[in-house]
């Protein structure tokens, strides 16, 4: 195993645990009917991908996210209070209650938007990367998407454009084995999605998406490569979606045995074990991180609870900016 400094490992641990704690709270509050709607897609079990990839990015780099996007935004540095407020549909939320879970966005941390259309980001991320090049910066754009999205036309169009123009994009496929209820074996003829990179003459790598350090290493390589002008990479992270596709999903298309196995690959526990075995940290230090995070999430819930509802009177002013150069 390469050397990792303790600060990085603690940061990765804290990020993953923050995502877990945030989403477990969201799941609980959704169950209590506190969060409007049912379009809430949780990434419990997939935290290592968001944490590992975003740790390889700078603050001014971009991410384009998916419908399952809470983890990406937390990992990019968004604050959990404004996220929780957004999920509750409050005016203090990042999107002033106009987006909700599925469209959660924080441009100030480089999060260009979760997206309700599967595969939509695959063509938006190359545009952010093109913009960086035209503006003369060395920013990189990361595009998160799932195995399901890899069958959309936008996957092929986005990879083709980015490869042809050698744009600084990292395409991160979170392969959790399912497009909603449809297993990967039923929705595509290949197992390793990274093989599709060959068709666009870009590197394709598959990593264990439950191993945050492995994700981080691969992402760092791809990000630096993009930053140096060598073009895009397709990085596939094989992971597991512990919960249903959305909060009300009965998830009866997966057997109890299959689901029981998911937790054996818990990315947070894996990192914990590794840290302690290698003497990088102590159980009490990890416990302290967890309790700090849990308190942060409680504060986020309180902030969201106390925040005001948005006003329909403000809607018309948000359709157009009304401005001009």
């Amino acid at each position: 195993m390469p050397e990792f400094d303790e600060e990085l490992i603690m940061r990765l641990y804290k990020t993953m645990y923050t995502i877990r704690s945030f989403e477990e709270k969201v799941s609980e509050q959704a169950g209590m009917g506190m969060i409007p709607g049912f379009m809430i897609h949780l990434s419990v079990g997939q935290e290592a991908v968001a944490a590992g990839v975003c740790a390889a990015l700078r603050q001014d780099d971009y991410i384009v996210s998916t419908h399952r996007g809470h983890g990406h935004l937390i990992a990019k540095g968004a604050s959990t209070d404004r996220m929780m407020a957004e999920l509750r549909g409050k005016e203090t939320g990042y999107c002033r209650g106009r987006g909700g879970s599925m469209h959660i966005t924080s441009v100030e941390v480089g999060g260009l938007g979760a997206n309700g259309i599967v595969g939509a980001g695959l063509v938006i991320a190359p545009g952010a990367a093109l913009s960086a090049r035209l503006r003369g910066t060395d920013q990189v754009a990361v595009c998160f998407f799932g195995d399901g999205a890899s069958n959309q036309g936008t996957f092929h169009e986005g990879l083709n454009l980015a490869a042809t123009w050698k744009l600084p994009v990292v395409f991160v496929c979170e392969n959790n084995g399912y497009g909603f209820s449809t297993p990967q074996s039923s929705h595509q003829s290949i197992g390793r999605i990274s093989r599709r990179a060959e068709a666009y003459d870009m590197p394709g790598i598959t990593v264990n998406g439950d191993d945050v350090l492995e994700v981080y290493l691969a992402a760092s390589w791809a990000v630096e490569r993009a930053r140096e002008g060598a073009g895009p990479t397709l990085l596939e992270a094989v992971t597991r979606r512990w919960l249903g596709h959305y909060v009300d999903d009965e998830d009866d298309y997966r057997s109890a045995e299959e689901k029981a196995e998911f937790t054996l690959h818990d990315p947070i526990e894996q990192l914990e074990r590794r840290c302690i075995e290698q003497g990088l940290t102590s159980t009490s230090q990890l416990e302290r991180i967890r309790s700090e995070v849990d308190e942060e999430i409680e504060r986020a819930c309180a902030f969201a609870e106390e925040s005001e509802e948005p006003s329909p009177e403000d809607d018309p002013g948000l359709i157009f900016s009304g401005g001009e150069r």
Partner: peptide, 28 residues
């Protein structure tokens, strides 16, 4: 040359890319 880009035949990609560029400071 850098300001007039011939694209592949790929409307979804270049209109999507234009959205990505527009929200990050360009005027495509």
């Amino acid at each position: 040359e850098g300001r007039v880009l011939d694209t592949p035949i790929t409307e979804s990609a270049f209109v999507g890319a234009a959205v990505g560029a527009a929200i990050t400071g360009m005027r495509p």
